[in-house]
Design a binder for these strands. Structure first.
Lengths: 217, 217, 217, 217
DNA sequence: GATGAATGAGTCTTCATTCAT
DNA sequence: CATGAATGAAGACTCATTCAT
């Protein structure tokens, strides 16, 4: 699941093959930050280079000087973020206490949904629309990681340390319940109060309860 | 939460104020069916009238004869489907057995994700992108319905008939876990085997376990 | 070598599959005429849709309504003209007098260079630049036609009715010497007087002499 | 027809007025070599500085340091090559045997088409497109040279040493028939076998026959 | 001498929408 | 009702050229 630097580089390939100078680093960062803001809200097709350029305080051709195309920016962004996005699952520790590990995973995922909602929506948009640009990653590295952790959870269940639940569906449900607060935040805010993050506390308590009860042996 | 016929009409308003003849009815249906197919997969901006017209076997100007604009088609579609989409929640019965009612709701939602995945993705796309066209519905009719059912669940908990969980977050988690199988089906298929619906059985069992344990008083 | 209507149609495919109405016929003609003027002078890359649109008195998107792309216009033009362009060679008559047939062919080719110089330059531009869009036609239908006529000439030589010359190179030399007056007319005019077609008379006499002497048994 | 050094210099004028150091000389050569490769295949408009810079292993701004503009490179290239390109005609010797002189000229031109096809295509592209950058050369030095040699040929004919043919058209036909194998080589290869230069032998024999017969008194 | 950075002016193409019949 | 025709506005991308170091 690890994206080597090589692969990340390749994805960014425009005219510039790797950030070297200060200026390049600054501009590449500005572009990716702006692109995250725009892509995560409007999806790939709904986003325009104009808007990204504007947010990055760069001219449109200058964007394309750093990244060869709109798609290259999108792919670079997805590649760059994927690793961080999956870190919580990766850190699920075979040596830890099963319940605490899983509940801790839920908590970390929820914190990410709170702190990095744009990243969550970026992937959500991509996947809902059929994952045109990362399907092979889903079918390769992602599947491998999930299978590995599912096997771990299966062993825990086999050993009677957690309830006998389907590990894959457990993982899906954790993704769904936590990312929901980022991806569908507009709806959450519409139903609850529209002010700030106050609902994350309630969400955390609820999910803690949900998974502790579901996993108790 | 009920959309009056009035409102539905208004949303569809193009040149035609209401379907009358057989032909009109057939064409309006064909357009909405084609639009559902296209919008749900590509989002609003990613969809083109050309593609919808092609799928509906109608000319592009003819689409706009029935609906005044691309946006009008989208709004009409969302309006038309919203009621059915919320029916399961609406039918949560105060007189029924609390656990069975809620678990039954989960089951019906999952069945809808299985049978009507395009509808699910249509709303998901809209909401992720900030719900530009249905924000007022979310804040009005949807919030009212959710609040009403949340109050019911709160009473059940108060009466000790289910565990003391936050009703709103319970509802969110049910939406999230069930719609996940429609909205992110590409990812689900990538991680599990890509063949057909076989995972819905596992999902149903898992969710049944999840919510029964979470709700047990 | 005959391009079936099918193939011609396919090449033109934009939104419109075949000219039907008056308006379509008129506009398609106007576009092809304008495109001939522009492409023949500036080559494919050097030509712009803007200039073609301007000459055709149509808007640029309207061009693309009839032909799907700049390349489609170019291909349609080449396809449409190829048949006429090769007609003189095709009409080389096995039953005629060998010398008169060949000299007559030279004369007709020269007349075409005089009357249809733009067509000649269109093909010249395309071929000089590697024939990116008609290479398969050159290797297929064109080669077949040339081989057929070369075989005829070979037989005439074998029968002692003309001198023993290599038929393929004979044909090449005829193409070269006649089309030269269209393709390189700027140079011809620069060296001779720049006024009008007066040099075509001299060219005709010279080429008649050249080929009669070369072919005399 | 001789381009004075003055003129050549002027054409190249960018920031650098004349090559001095080894490095400069090497870079100028590399640029012209790369430009020849690219311009001859894609024409002026179809060529990009990027591609030339890449082939020359230099940066794009560095190209423009040596030559002030894309056009300047093109003009420099044309100027530099013109003299060599016309050398065979220039060396037509009044003191030689008329037939052998002319047939020898044909042979040398054919050898140039074989050995320097890029140069041939460079001029062909330029002239077909109206010679925007060398029209004055065509009308001046080139016309003068051609007129001079035409007069020589006219005298030979007058003296009965060759047949009475129009000298200008004779020269045009020699240009056309020989350069054809360079300019339209794609077509020649498509009609004959696509392997290598084998057809040049046939071409030489044919053209020898063609002109000896045409010129025999 | 050399180049990384930047861009204005194109250039092709898409697309929702309008017009005319 | 329906559609062929047309387009303005926008959008992605290219490219010769300039700037700053």
């Amino acid at each position: 699941m690890t994206l080597s630097k090589q692969e990340t580089r390749k994805a960014e390939t425009g005219s510039v093959s790797r950030p070297r100078t200060r200026i390049q680093e600054r501009n590449v960062s500005a572009i990716l930050e702006a692109a995250l803001e725009v892509f995560s809200r409007h999806g790939f097709r709904g986003s325009t280079l104009d808007r990204i350029a504007e947010r990055a305080h760069l001219s449109k051709p200058n964007l394309l000087y750093y990244f060869g195309s709109k798609e290259a920016i999108h792919v670079a962004l997805l590649s760059e973020l994927l690793e961080a996005w999956l870190a919580p699952l990766r850190s699920l520790d075979p040596a830890g206490d099963p319940i605490e590990e899983i509940v801790g995973y839920v908590k970390r995922k929820l914190e990410m949904a709170r702190g990095l909602p744009r990243e969550s929506r970026l992937f959500a948009n991509e996947i809902i629309q059929g994952a045109p640009q990362i399907l092979d990653i889903l079918e390769g590295p992602l599947k491998d990681l999930v299978d590995e952790k599912a096997e771990l959870i299966r062993r825990w269940a086999e050993e009677g340390r957690i309830a006998a639940v389907d590990p894959h569906h457990l993982i899906f449900s954790i993704w769904a319940t936590t990312q929901h607060y980022a991806d569908f935040d507009v709806q959450v805010r519409a139903v609850l109060d529209p002010d700030g993050d106050t609902h994350f506390g309630g969400a955390e308590r609820f999910l803690d309860h949900l998974y502790r009860n579901a996993l108790a042996p």
